[in-house]
Amino acid sequence: MIEFNNVIKRFGSTIAVDNLCLRINTGEIFGLLGPNGAGKSTANKMLIGLLKPTSGSITVNSLDIAQHGLKTRKHLALVPQELAVYESMSAQENIVFFAKLAGLKGKELQNKTDNALDFCGLLDYRYKKVKTFSWGMKRRLNIACAIVNEPQIIIMDEPTVGIDPQSRSHILDSIQTLNERGMTVIYTSHYMSEVERICDRVGIIDQGKLIAVGTTAEIKSRLNNQEKIIVQTLDINYAALDEIKKLYGVENAVYNGYQLEIQTAAVKNNVLDALTVLAKHNVQLLKIELEKPTLEDVYLSLTGRSLRD
């Protein structure tokens, strides 16, 4: 089990992580969500020992990482956001180098290297230089280097950035397989669909503070009283849009690209009222959908819609 106890991390006058209290259970896939600069990577880096907390403590299996850094790092591995592999070396040389440093040797080193290459779909490219790899292959190698010594806990910091859907799907399936083998996974991403697909629990962090934590269902239930009416239409006039916005229970209405999105507080008759207004203004309807709030809606409602740096 991993515990962040009142962890604060300051960089000069900036507070990157503000009094973080979080528990991640053994064997779960925990999703860490947040805008850029929210403090996710800083939290991950503190856990792996790259950064030291300004105050507070982090424990891994009841061992304080400040006092037992080496011991805890034997059970942890990081898949960094950026590629961290030697481009001039082959895939196998990369994996073997990091595996040896992690303490593997002999037959075990050979077997686990083969397993990692196979697991990441790189067995056929083991002797090829990394600089000849596609971006997706490099990302998979980035993962292979981290999992080769089969750590108990793996921290994945946006491992699917900039890759094609096939590689992304492969990586997500791999994460689930690793988890089924007993690995605890901390998964940081901006892609809500990925988090919803693979994570057992999710934490949303913003401006260094943990603002929500729970299962995806629990988090989504925060907006349970809301729903979205999506109307596809070829055109709408501003008078109709204004009238809809003024309806009781309607929180917002936006028309964008032949699609009208009406955010409602799930009040009875909202759909009917909206349709009545559209009919009154002779708006031609193509399709109507009702949508329950997604994780992205909750995320945006908690972290706001303003752009971040």
Binding site: I48, G49, L50, L70, K71, R73, K74, L76, A77, L78, P80, E82, L83, A84, V85, Y86, E87, F98, L101, A102, G103, C145
Partner: peptide
């Protein structure tokens, strides 16, 4: 620059 130094820092090494 290649972040490989960072990766070695995450390993059980001093």
């Amino acid at each position: 620059e290649d972040r490989t130094l960072m990766r070695t820092f995450t390993l059980p090494l001093t």
